[in-house]
Amino acid sequence: MKPKTATEEKVWVKLVLIGGAIAYLALVLFLPALNVFLQAFKFGLGAFFHHLTEPAFLSAARLTVIIALIVVPINTVFGLCAAWVIARNQFPGRTLLISILDIPFAVSPVVTGLMIVLLYGLNGWFGRFLEAVNIKIVFALPAMIFASAFITMPFIAREVIPVLEEAGTDQEEAAKTLGATDWQIFWSVTLPTIRWGLLYGLILTNARVMGEFGAVSVVSGNIIGKTQTLPLFVEDAYKAYESQAAFSASVVLAGLALVTLVLKEIVERKTQIKDVE
């Protein structure tokens, strides 16, 4: 008798909760986002695709993808190491280390750009040296990579730490007593445990790298066809009274940044199959 009333109540609660969540998302997220899509397709599909064949757009898209391809793997390696260090060890200064790791969140992206200029700019710490050896960092790809890496540094660690802590060490220790190597433990015990955290971390990192504007704009120089990323292209098109090109590029950017979601989907399917087995 009791389970029945519980499930009945559950349906009612479920509907209210879903309704509430969707209403909130609609107000905050969907309507503003819908507006972007409407603006992009205001003059039809033809106009939309026309904007996407401009050389300036293509080179901006290429640059954005290049930066993501460099930054995401580097920050994944770092993020996993940092998460392991923090979640699996107790040591004095642990909370401090977590807070240091959070610095990129606390720093305004604009200030991030400023920091990199202060380091590598013509009048920065390494400016003279870099000029002497003729290496360009600021207003070229390296500084844009540094800025993007800085901003997205904590995401993966931050997502993985709670999962690692929640999961505990029993399984890993069991594997170790069975003689598994570190790599084996990592691949077959730790990684499956943290896969959701890691994936969400990847999604966030990738999306943030691709969408970053403030920090990159300070260090890029915004040279069309050379150091212009997609967000900068969007801003530039908008400033040149080409709002439709701007919104079209935003739609593409949103699509690119969500590539990781496809990855998530694939992993979800695969693990489901595994679970069934």
Partner: peptide, 9 residues
Amino acid sequence: DLPFALPTA
């Protein structure tokens, strides 16, 4: 994830 993917501008 849209808020991340959309350029802030």
